[in-house]
Design a binder for these strands. Structure first.
Lengths: 183, 183
DNA sequence: TTTTTGCATTTTGCATGCAAAAATTAGAGC
DNA sequence: GCTCTAATTTTTGCATGCAAAATGCAAAAA
């Protein structure tokens, strides 16, 4: 059915499904086919936990070795995000937010780290867009980002890692809350 | 050639190579085929850095929630490793060492974390066996493991994460040294 | 009603053919 | 000896056929 729908044959479809499975987006049930990986709160929490540790490490590295240009790029995104926040543009805000976190991770200059982070991020994206966060949470998130930005520009690794960890822990709580409400 | 050698056809061979590529063991060069991923010191260092962060997180989690049985299992492996050390059985020591680190990560109870750790570990295994460590490094590693074991059994998360980080940083130095000598 | 048994279907894994795109090699010309 | 072009080979991606193994279902038996 999928072959027909997508206009391709089984071989490439199977390869694609296998790839999605290694990325954790699809689940392979032995001899029973494949299904979209269910959004399990537990797994989501586990993933965010790991992402928190990765961001913390990346932040530490970024403080040590990010170039001025990289910091400026992150600052630009931050300011753009601020504008989206002021305009109550949630979708735009999410995009900027994602981009900022990704840039911070990249600024760490560790491609292995960045690769894993990206993959994990793909897994929580679905859930993240569900997190139609409250005004209070949004306000708080902006304050957190402000502090993160300041720490990064000051290259204060210790403070930055703490802030990133806290930020992600709060995001985790928000996302879990949203997922459970949806379930 | 590989098809002949392995007695299989192209499709499964190509799937296997692709899988190895996603695991980072093989490198795909666009339109120029595949090759065993070269042992780059830089990439190795990056990987170990990430593994360090993962172990630290896992250790923290393990202190909070590892069962007594899990701790006992790790202790048993630790004692076995001690015996291998006493007997100067390097291969056996490596095996125990690997198993201990894996068990600690598993004791964290975060399957996402454990999965990524395993994958990263597969990437450094080749290099690790090259690290024909010196007697001094071996002695030091044993002392470090002793301290790690103690902190874990005391469920002292802060100390454990620090020790794990240090232990891995030293291992990184040793491995890098070995790789560079080989190159 | 539950269990067993047999059958049809599905899943999996592999083999092979084909065509387009890119790289490599060979050869002609300077 | 070098450069540029053309021919050949590789790589890549896809289509399709086939067979073994596992599953799900339904009829028969307990």
């Amino acid at each position: 059915m999928l072959c027909e729908r997508l206009g391709i044959s089984r071989t490439p479809l199977r390869e694609a499904i296998k790839l999605l499975a290694t990325e954790g987006l699809v689940r392979l049930l032995p001899h029973r086919g494949a299904q979209v990986a269910p959004l399990e709160a537990r797994r989501l929490a586990d993933t965010l936990e790991v992402m928190g540790a990765m961001e913390a490490l990346a932040g530490e590295l970024a403080c040590r070795q990010a170039s001025a240009a990289q910091l400026a790029g992150i600052r630009a995104l931050h300011d753009e995000m601020l504008a989206k926040y002021a305009a109550r543009d949630l979708a735009g805000y999410f995009r900027c937010n994602q981009a900022i976190h990704l840039k911070i991770v990249e600024a760490g200059g560790n491609p292995v780290l960045a690769g894993i982070y990206r993959q994990l991020n793909a897994n929580v994206l679905r859930a993240r867009y569900m997190a139609n966060l409250s005004q209070e949470r949004w306000d708080a998130a902006m304050r957190e980002h402000e502090a993160i930005m300041t720490a990064l520009e000051a290259r204060d690794a210790q403070r930055l890692t703490r802030l990133l960890r806290e930020h992600l822990a709060l995001k985790l709580a928000a996302v879990l809350n949203a997922v459970e409400k949806a379930a």
